[in-house]
Amino acid sequence: MTIPMIVLAAISVVAGFVETPWNGWLSGWLNGSGAAEAAHGSGIAAMVASIGVGALGIYLGWLFFVKKSIRNGLMAEKLPGLLRTVERGYYLDELYRVIVVKPLRGLGTTLAAFDEYVIGGTVRMTGSLTTAAGRLAARLSNGKVQTYGLAALIGCIVLIVAIVGRRFW
């Protein structure tokens, strides 16, 4: 594993130089002209700041682990909250779980229930209503003349009411 790491490390040391404020190989290649685009705004402050922060980090690491002038465990005593926050990656995973994953799961469960009971229920109800109507109609067609006569009579009355009734409204 050491040799690939050495190779990768060597490449990564050089890789950053494809695009620097004084040398725009990458952007030139990307925009196809071969010439670097004019830098948008001055990034000097950002550059200095980020290099400064990086250097500070390296210096702190050196104090902690190489020179050992800062006692190991000092952070845990003095700033336990900060240490924990950093250890948990600024709680981003937890935040993500609360903001995104849980609501989506809840929504998914709700929709699944909706699909099963409301949509599926409507379909099932339509089916059973049709069956029920068929059963009712089957019961009416029992071969007894009286039943048919009654049905015909009811139908006549409905028709008469409908026709006569239209004159009044």
Binding site: L104, R105, L107, G108, T109, L111, A112, D115
Partner: peptide, 10 residues
């Protein structure tokens, strides 16, 4: 979206 959300909980 409906299909995807429900598929997530199956």
């Amino acid at each position: 979206l409906y299909g995807a959300l429900i598929a997530f909980r199956q």
